[in-house]
């Protein structure tokens, strides 16, 4: 039986629209005009207990809004959702004790005091007996590799340590459903990897269900076997994305900082030229060609710096979109939104 169900979930906001400039400001002050923003449009899915599902999409796609509806912070405009048998927006105590929400950009820890003080408060709020709380703190601290940092004021922690401490505060009551909104935002590669490892082991240890949003593809591919792709509020794909990207977006992005400006024709032999801005160039190179092409780039071009990465999520989405339109067989759970999205 699914633990999270969303049926035709929609949320629209009324946002004030303001033209730039003094005149626009005056007009905005006197007579405000509003525009309806459909943040989430008719999204349906269900998640089984213990699943780790990734919510992938560009900024403003509606990921966070969807998470906020599922965690009960905002009321859906239309449709319904159910989490662990509860209606989230009612926010009853049993529901709140079974979930947690971690937001990469917001923090709940007390800035001036050591982490342990915030943890004590959370333990008391969730009615966790002191001895049990201490045991859980030790367990989480060991899993996250935090030790002496727990007695330091939060303001003295590094961003990575602070995120780990936030996770401790969010998981002390041992929720079975985790909503994570960009949990690795701004962290360096090592810290990102250790947060991911921790989430995986928490999932295995407690059988927790995890729904996370990210726009780092690495987060998603490392953690989730199932991904939901959301764009402009619409669910456009639900299934095993990593495999699909391999098929549909078989390229890596090579970013070059060059010592002199090159013309597009000069770079064309190495791969598909995406952009050239002065001495910076972006090329798309097929994965199987990468090992062959890189040495040639380094020897033939005057390269100052070179990085290889995945193309940005927006581009992957574009490719998935086009792939979906041409190869519909790849879609595992077609949604009404998918058809609508592909048509626009």
């Amino acid at each position: 039986m699914p633990i999270i169900v969303a049926e035709h979930l929609s949320k629209s906001y009324r946002a004030a629209a303001k033209e730039p400039g003094m005149l626009g400001t005056l007009r905005h002050f006197v007579r405000r005009r509003y525009r309806l923003i459909e943040a989430v449009r008719d999204v349906s899915f269900s998640i089984e207990p213990g699943e780790i599902v990734g919510f992938l999409g560009p900024n403003g796609a509606g990921k966070t809004t969807a998470l906020k509806m599922l965690s009960g912070l905002i009321h859906p405009t239309a449709g319904r959702c159910e989490v662990a048998g509860h209606t989230p927006f009612a926010r009853d105590s049993a529901f709140l004790r079974s979930i947690t929400l971690v937001m990469g950009q917001k923090q709940q820890l007390i800035w001036d005091l050591p982490v342990l003080d915030s943890l004590r408060i959370n333990a008391a709020v969730y009615d966790i007996p002191e001895a049990e709380a201490r045991r859980r703190v030790d367990e989480l601290a060991a899993m996250l590799g935090l030790t002496t940092q727990l007695t330091q004021p939060v303001r003295k922690l590094s961003l990575g340590e602070r995120m780990k401490a936030e996770l401790m505060a969010a998981l002390l009551h041992r929720p079975s459903i985790l909503f994570l909104d960009e949990p690795t935002l701004g962290l360096d590669v090592n810290a990102q990897a250790s947060v991911r490892e921790f989430l995986l082991s928490y999932n295995q240890r407690h059988g927790a269900t995890i729904l996370l949003t990210s726009h780092y593809k690495a987060d998603i591919t490392a953690l989730c076997r199932r991904e939901m792709l959301i764009d402009k509020g619409t669910l456009i794909y639900d299934g095993d994305l990593a495999a699909m990207i391999e098929r549909l977006a078989p390229c890596r992005e090579v970013r070059l900082d060059l010592r002199r400006a090159y013309a597009a024709e000069e770079l064309a032999p190495f791969g598909e030229v995406r952009t050239i801005e002065g001495r910076a160039a972006h090329l798309l190179v097929r994965r199987e060609d990468l090992t062959r092409v890189l040495p040639r780039i380094l020897s033939d071009l005057d390269v100052e710096d070179l990085t290889v990465g995945d193309p940005p999520v927006e581009q992957i989405i574009g490719q998935v979109f086009n792939g979906q339109a041409s190869a519909n067989a790849d879609v595992q759970t077609p949604t009404p939104g998918a058809a609508q999205g592909a048509a626009t």
Binding site: K68, L73, L96, M103, K106, Q108, V125
Partner: peptide, 13 residues
């Protein structure tokens, strides 16, 4: 303003 009210609303209290 900062959205930390979210945390308050999600506490079972």
């Amino acid at each position: 303003q900062t959205g930390t009210l979210d945390f308050v609303l999600l506490k079972p209290i």
